[in-house]
Amino acid sequence: MTSGRSIFEDVSENHAFASPKGPKQDPRNNRGAVVKWLFILFALVVLMVAVGGLTRLTDSGLSITEWRPVTGAFPPTSEADWTSEFEKYQASPEYQIQNQGMQLSDFKRIYWWEWGHRQLGRVIGLVWAAGFLFFLLTRRIPRGWTGRLLLLGGLGGLQGAVGWWMVASGLVGARTDVASYRLATHLGLAFIILGLISWYILRLRRTEAELLQARRRSDRRLSNSGLLLLAVCFVQILLGALVAGIDAGRSFTDWPLMGGRFFPATAWDLEPIWRNLFENSGLVQFMHRMWGYLFLVLAVLVWRVSRRSGQTAIRKAYGAILHGLAFQVLFGIATVLMAAPWYLGLLHQLVGVAVFVTIIRARFVASYPPDQKIARS
């Protein structure tokens, strides 16, 4: 009589994935390869956010007045090509209202910024497509992950369309900038993509068996608190985009008051009244400030709760949020007091990326705490 296998017997991954045709590839190695690819995508998207911010800060976003996803990859090469592109820009409201008399040399400078921004988007699309097809055709995508990775590509394509939808809003009527709510949509979608990539990386760095074990140690309260902080952070990012879209950061350059008052006197000047929520520089900056204060208070409260956790990794992860947010608040105040110079505006945006990703990591650690070794006395 043969003895049955004990339920406590260790079963290695080699046993679990063995087959009559020989051992399959180690799933951990497959996950590692996908993680490296996702890290590349993550870095490219962060770079895209930075270049997009600089494109906005240099008023370059409306220099290309057509959306040509394929042929637009090739920039003007002759003087005739440059003249043609410049003539198209001269027909735009931005040129006619704001940049009358601009020389071709100045146009080339802003053109290259926008072209580089769009070209980087194409590069990201190619990196995603090449990686996804490679892993798909070689059957190296971990089980259950095909749809998730495909989602990234779909959102990337949607981001390109949203980008043109945003630019198109600044090419009609008497506008000299894109619509702020469309800019917020564009930036918000970029952060959604960044958030998904970050979460995927964190999950794929551990096997499903490890995640299942870690889930049993999860701190649901702090996991939910992390989700709340993430939502608050996302709203603050959207409000920041509204500020950038109408240059509201340069309208009130005192702090903690605004024009010597707590609430700006011009907050409800526009008609109809709903326009003030998107286009009134005083009200938009006020909302960004107040939501930032709320964000900071919530982060402190969650940090205090996290200090009671028995998991060192959780305490450190939520402490990192508070440290990052403190820097972000200081950069935000400095940006206001200095009337939003481009370098501080860019730094403020990138620190926002860091805070956003730090919150995602903290929530992951609370949901899937790592093994905590107990020191022997």
Rank of each mutant, 00 (worst) to 15 (best):
M1S: 12
M1P: 09
S3M: 05
S3A: 12
F8W: 13
V11N: 07
A18S: 06
A18M: 02
S19W: 04
P20K: 08
D26S: 07
D26Q: 08
G32D: 07
A33G: 11
L38Y: 02
V49F: 03
T65I: 01
E66D: 04
R68D: 08
V70S: 06
T71Q: 15
P75W: 02
P76M: 05
T77M: 09
S78K: 07
S78T: 06
E79Q: 14
W82A: 03
E85I: 07
Y89Q: 04
Q90M: 06
A91S: 13
S92A: 02
S92M: 05
E94C: 04
E94S: 04
Q98I: 12
Q98S: 14
N99Q: 10
N99M: 12
Q100Y: 02
L104F: 15
D106K: 11
Y111Q: 09
W112E: 13
E114M: 10
L120K: 10
L126A: 15
W128F: 10
A129E: 11
L133A: 12
F135A: 11
L137K: 11
R140M: 12
P142T: 12
T146V: 11
L149V: 05
L150S: 10
G153K: 12
G156C: 05
V162F: 02
A168G: 04
S169G: 02
G170D: 06
G170Y: 01
G170K: 02
L171G: 06
L171N: 02
G173M: 00
G173F: 00
G173K: 00
T176H: 01
V178E: 01
A184G: 01
L189R: 02
I193M: 00
L194K: 07
L194W: 08
I197P: 00
I201K: 00
T207V: 06
T207M: 10
A209H: 13
Q213L: 10
R215V: 02
R215D: 05
R216N: 09
R217F: 12
S218F: 05
R221W: 07
N224R: 15
L227W: 14
V232C: 10
C233T: 13
C233V: 09
G240F: 03
A241N: 07
A244I: 00
G245A: 01
I246N: 00
F252T: 03
T253W: 00
T253C: 00
D254Y: 09
D254C: 03
M258L: 11
G259V: 05
F262Y: 11
A265Y: 12
T266P: 12
W268F: 14
I273H: 12
R275S: 00
N276W: 13
F278H: 01
F278K: 03
E279M: 01
G282A: 03
G282F: 04
L283Q: 15
F286S: 11
F286G: 11
R289F: 07
G292I: 00
L296S: 05
A299Q: 03
L301I: 08
S306H: 04
R308G: 08
I321C: 07
L325M: 08
V329Q: 03
G332N: 03
V336G: 08
L337Q: 10
L337V: 13
L337I: 11
Y343W: 15
G352E: 14
G352V: 15
A354V: 14
V355F: 13
F356I: 09
V357T: 15
V357P: 14
R361A: 14
V365E: 13
S367M: 13
S367E: 12
Y368F: 14
Y368N: 06
P370N: 02
